[in-house]
């Protein structure tokens, strides 16, 4: 029911957007009548071309820009088990210095899907959907139909199997390596199970809704929703994360320096 609470204002905001931006074109279809997800998208609440924020008058503060046309990212509160919540808060107290992404290690969705600075490309055939992520230069091949293989080796992005439910591509993902960071300090286990729902709402808008199950970390599943907007004219560019990654050395130096480490550590009693 809480999810319904999230969806209702999203529909409301979307209605306002249509009034502001004019006609919204329908979602395209493939020759076999399926919704066509093909395209380059970016997590964003705004239609149209790339529209990163621009500097305003005050240093570091962006100029005002038009409001979002639709909902951006929405999440239910994370139903952590007590020990997982304590671990998550400790991670945030350490300002996420231990984030595997700092070492260029692959990330599972939804985190990799919601990184708004980097585009995502969908390639669709009648038997597969391939999602390519510029961030960390990783990809997933999602066969349509069938079941998970019985020889899965645990991986960072998991094993995906898709099926069409009406206009929605539903993807079941299992087989994760434990220890990946999903969101806000959530470190998932090997029991992570994602049920993803991709719906091309209209030509510009791809809705991504993911239900996250992890009984070793969560007391119950929870749902996140991210809007991906079509970015025509944007192409994926190579991102070789390890090319010049100075972060591990900087972090190691900071952890050995009492002044620096006391500066970045947040007080557990008084987090800023």
């Amino acid at each position: 029911m809480r999810l319904m609470g999230i969806l209702i204002p999203s529909v409301f905001v979307a209605s306002l957007a249509m009034a502001q931006t004019g006609a919204v074109q329908p979602a395209p279809k493939t020759v076999d009548g399926k919704p066509d997800l093909t395209g380059v998208y970016q997590a964003s609440p705004r239609r149209g071309a790339w529209d990163a924020e621009a500097p305003g008058d005050e240093p570091g503060v962006p100029a005002a820009r038009r409001p979002g046309d639709v909902a951006g990212v929405a999440s239910e509160p994370i139903p952590f088990r007590p020990e997982a919540r304590a671990r998550a808060q400790e991670i945030l107290n350490r300002r996420s210095i231990d984030d595997p992404a700092g070492h260029c290690i692959f990330l599972a969705s939804p985190r990799i899907t919601g990184v708004g600075l980097f585009p995502v490309q969908f390639v669709q055939t009648p038997t597969q959907v391939i999602i390519m992520y510029e961030y960390l230069w990783s990809f997933r091949v999602i066969p349509i139909g069938g079941t998970h293989p019985d020889d899965i080796s645990p991986s960072y992005l998991g094993d995906s199997v898709g099926r069409w439910e009406g206009n929605t591509l539903v993807v079941d993902v299992v087989g994760f390596k434990p220890g990946g960071w999903l969101t806000l300090g959530m470190v998932h286990s090997d029991a992570l199970h994602l049920i993803e729902r991709y719906t091309r709402v209209d030509r510009d808008q791809l809705s991504y809704e993911v239900t996250i199950e992890d009984p070793k970390v969560l007391t119950k599943p929870f749902t996140q929703r991210i809007t991906l907007m079509l970015r025509e004219g944007t192409r994926l560019r190579e991102y070789s994360c390890a090319e010049n990654n100075m972060d591990p050395a900087v972090y190691e130096k900071m952890l050995k320096d009492p002044a620096a480490s006391s500066s970045f550590l947040r007080s557990p009693e008084k987090p800023r």
Binding site: I6, S75, P77, R95, S96, G102, L117, F118, M254
Partner: peptide, 19 residues
């Protein structure tokens, strides 16, 4: 729910610059 939606920004990039 709208408040949650408004507060939840798209996730940061490679890492938190605050480290």
């Amino acid at each position: 729910a709208l408040a949650v939606l408004t507060c939840t920004t798209t996730l940061a990039a490679h890492h938190s610059f605050g480290v």
